[in-house]
Write a protein that binds this DNA or RNA. Structure first.
Lengths: 220, 220, 220, 220
DNA sequence: GATGAATGAGGCTTCATTCAT
DNA sequence: TATGAATGAAGCCTCATTCAT
């Protein structure tokens, strides 16, 4: 029954880290702030981590692994490049909108990692992005995407979908599923996706609701 | 010709600051690094600045003011919302591609500023973004942009154009003017810009070359 | 009995601060000296203070509050202005002679305080001095003090009694109680205090031994 | 004609030093402040001094030498210990009231001097004080001073007369000559100076106006 | 598991001073 | 004479971390 307190502290630390890293940046956050955010003394932190970087790695892994997993799921669930694109965008936005702080940190603080961790994360990220590029390519080859430069456009798609982390608020006027749909349409616009009769929109496609990776959490 | 030693140091400091802030983040850069980057001792730095934040403010102003100026020029030069959009995107990309480090810092480190400077910069940025929103609105009202949500789309346009700072290299395979055109087309896609016979591309419009704000500099 | 290490350090720091500030002046004392005086490294100091000024404030409060308290006691214990004056002088000298270093710092370093603390201390000091002035006035009004200028004379009384901090040594030839009596006589001289048959001396009055505020400490 | 500028700077520097040292203390004053007080850059200061301590030494010498000189004059002019005491007090007060900042520095900053200069100044000061003690002793031996402890009383006399530097203002309500007379009376009180019919006051003695050492200067 | 205490290293900044011009 | 530029040393303070309790 004593272990309950324990997990509370661990959880508060996680939250504090996400909140602080997201708002001030990893380098600008001191362990004193982390400790007071978690309601303990600095020395206590070292029962929960071996160093500040641990916290950062945890945050990143909490994002990047589910994201990769969900991306694979999207690829398996759909085969039409337009549907695949929509699914990718929507699960990406789902995570970036639903856990904006964590994804912000994840997207921003690669440089703050030590060499080992950085390489590992970079690899994962590259693989993830390759999936997206593949889909764009498939759309182009299928003649249903009209794209000048595949690399730039893919980057644009990712940039666009990632951007929601910078401004979206779960408790704002827009519901997360609606945001997903809106961003999916933007993505289809970007690649000039074509349907039977001209430009295609999300609502024209046979795509289910967003894959619900990671429950949204306004604190994360 | 001897009096230049001074300006050389100042220039080297500027370059070092941009380079270091861009790659490691303001908070993670120590003044020792800045000093050695500028080829002087730390005490010497204080002949050129009153504090580390000075360097950051300088960088930001070097970007944000020219950007605002060029945006105003774009608005005056063109009246068609599609042309205006293209002009905005192209001068934005011109700067973000041509001075990627400075713009990266400018876009990322607002939080590192003290309260006074932060407010000032925020104001300027807000005004700048309002210009973009106005153009989108005008396009929608004119029936030539097909946009679901003006705010989200405007944010997307800015995100997209700003994103080039994260990956574009002046010395890479793509020429800056070409990048501008490509990004302009992406923007037109995003708003589903319409011409006489369907979707419009940059090449369909009567827009001159990008406004050449700030000469590109691979070091900046 | 092991838990005292802590208080030992704190005490050593207090002593070092008093000693150093008194002999070299607040501004001339570096935290390195304070640290080595306390037998710790500089970083350790900050477990015991939030800044150098803390130490100064502590010293001042250790003097000024007991002084005010004892002054009030003197006023309550006696009603005859001559007796009151003697009591004030003696408790003042008791403190200034018994804790010369602390009082020296207290009297000298007001200017080294930040604005907030300075104002607070100034207020307390002003109130304290007002008590003295009141006693002089009462003596004049009762016709037992012969004083040309009340303000100047009061200042002189305080100057005189405070002055012992500059030269008295607890371990010198003069005992603290004797010093008190001597200074009391000087004070009576200064105001030309009159008794039944001419000038009055301390031994003519019905005054008990000095109020023993703060035990004397040659280190303080 | 160019030398005029020169002397202006030297003079401004002197004034700035006195003003700053008096109000903040030698150790707390930086050469930047001295420079800006003198209206030049820091490097320029070194055309007028060989180090910060020079300024302090100059200030002290400007006080201590004239003081000693005037003390000797007082001893030569008068022979009655009561008159001598009055003359000493009045010229001391004349200087300490007329040049309060300089005397403040002079009395306070001995500790800030290097060993060599400190010893020299200490010697001068000791000699000066010895003169005072001599006078008190002579009064006691002549049976016209009633003093318990010669050393303590002498110290008290000096403390009292020196004290004016801490509060007197040339531009306040009290004229300097009046202040001298008031303080002379306080001194006579302190030693219980006797005349033909009881306690003696300054006005009972045959003493001329204060020796006018050093013209008063509110800036000094 | 929690923490008080301590610390080496380094944070940013100012110090007094020198020197070439 | 005046100063812009540079600097080693030191200023105060915070950093992340360890360890005994």
């Amino acid at each position: 029954m004593v272990r309950k307190l324990n997990e509370q502290t661990r959880e508060r630390l996680r939250l504090a880290a996400v909140e602080l890293f997201a708002s001030a940046g990893f380098a600008a956050v001191g362990i004193r702030e982390l400790a007071s955010g978690a309601g303990v003394r600095t020395a206590t932190l070292y029962n929960y981590m071996s160093g500040k970087e641990d916290l950062l790695v945890d945050i990143m892994q909490s994002i990047i692994d589910p994201l990769a997993e969900a991306a694979r799921e999207a690829m398996e669930t759909y085969s039409d490049p337009r549907e695949r694109l929509v699914a990718l965008v929507e699960m990406h936005v789902w995570v970036h909108g639903g856990r904006r702080r964590s994804t912000l940190v994840s997207d921003t603080e690669l440089r703050s990692l030590g060499e080992v961790a950085r390489k590992e994360m970079s690899l994962k990220r590259d693989e993830y992005e390759k999936l997206w590029r593949t889909v764009v390519q498939q759309g182009v080859e299928a003649g249903i995407f009209d794209v000048d430069n595949i690399v730039i456009t893919t980057t644009g798609l990712l940039t666009l979908a990632t951007g929601v982390a910078y401004w979206y608020r779960l408790d704002g006027p827009i519901q997360l599923p609606d945001l997903c749909a809106l961003q999916a349409d933007l993505a289809l616009n970007l690649v000039r996706a074509q349907g039977a009769n001209g430009p295609v929109r999300r609502s024209d496609l046979n795509v289910g609701p967003p894959i619900e990776v990671l429950p949204p959490d306004p604190a994360l």
